[in-house]
Amino acid sequence: MALSTTFYNAFFRRNSVYVGTVFAGAFAFGIGFDLGVTKFYDTWNKGKQWKDIRQKYVQESE
């Protein structure tokens, strides 16, 4: 209860803060979600993607 009240007072009391939080959250969510899905996808397909086998073929001399 106390936590929810703190939350309410911090983010929801003023609409400007609320809307600002929503947009900032959308920005952060977009990046975080992308990173999370990519991480999961790379873990799931470990060793199959080009970035996993690339170092075998790249000449380091250049």
Partner: peptide
Amino acid sequence: SNRALSYFMIGSMGVISASAAKS
């Protein structure tokens, strides 16, 4: 008692909708 939760849910919907709209 659900006030903060309701705001949170509506806010989350806004967050995800905005993210989807942006992409």
